[in-house]
Design a protein around this nucleic acid. Sequence first.
DNA 1: GTCTATATACGGATAGAC
DNA 2: GTCTATCCGTATATAGAC
Lengths: 191, 191
Amino acid sequence: MINSKTETRGLILNTAAVLFRNKGYHATGLNEIIRESGAPKGCLYYHFPQGKEQLAQEAIKVVGLEIQAKMEKVFQVYEDPVEAIQEFIRQSTESIFTRAEDRRFSVSLLALETMNMNENLRQTCSEVFSDWEEVVYNKLCSGGFSTETARSCSEMVIAMIEGAMTLSLTKRQPEALLSFADWAGRLLRQQ
Amino acid sequence: MINSKTETRGLILNTAAVLFRNKGYHATGLNEIIRESGAPKGCLYYHFPQGKEQLAQEAIKVVGLEIQAKMEKVFQVYEDPVEAIQEFIRQSTESIFTRAEDRRFSVSLLALETMNMNENLRQTCSEVFSDWEEVVYNKLCSGGFSTETARSCSEMVIAMIEGAMTLSLTKRQPEALLSFADWAGRLLRQQ
DNA sequence: GTCTATATACGGATAGAC
DNA sequence: GTCTATCCGTATATAGAC
């Protein structure tokens, strides 16, 4: 459990993270979160006094950290940064299209839904993107990229993953993601 | 007016297109569409018997065509395909960050919201993406790219635009989009 | 900490008059 | 083609007992 002061709180938060990431902010109801989590029905506003906004804000951080952990795990296995990034893309694609069809390795939906509606949530999503970029940046630097090149590349890598994932998921075809993995290899090595 | 058999119908549809594109499917209510459009209040289900789904499906097509028209307009001015693509990105960035802050040149939000919820809407978004790719594909071919290269590049260009736009909008900084325009130039010329 | 009941609003959708 | 009234479900949120 991540970020759980109590068992119940953590249960609700983790359930919320799954639902928000898969269905988005507006399509996920508080009732649904309580029902799915199996948590006591009366305790949501006790643990999250500011209601849905607070729950979403914390859940976005959880989603961000989950995906970041997955990325770091892959990065530890592959020393070469380019290979590591390619492998992360391929493994994410595999997860999406086989293990759990409706899961996304992305916070694009939450970001796009909330950016013009709630400044706190927008800011939280923005920080998640920046954190991911930092992980890629460090990996590129440790692999010999100049800090300037690594900075520019890391933002492009995250942007492209989000975009290619959106296209692949919409078309229900892994091609966009897989062909991006190939592209990323060529592009980064040419820097 | 696009696709309007009658004045009122077109009015509703165009208003719906603006709201859906900016706020997404779930955050946009039918009441809101009627109110904003100024259309007669009782006539929504007369013009759109299948309700919100039908309205959204047609609106997604409208949004897709609007963005496609914008792209084609820029492509007509610049003969070189790489230059044309770069210019489209720069002009879109300008539009987003100056003329109308909450406007997006994207259907990512609608695609991500509906893909696991409604097969019709998912399919419609998928077709919009494919149509955009086709425009880029034709431009690249006419500029001397091989059909194979053009096919792969066109999908990457659309994916990258969607991803970079998501990041730029979330961070409220044009950098991701503008730096992608530079990248796109280098990448495509190296093919 | 947890529960029930409820307030209040808004969502999409329908029926039937005009 | 348009309007009004309304049904019904669900949403977030709160009050107060236990």
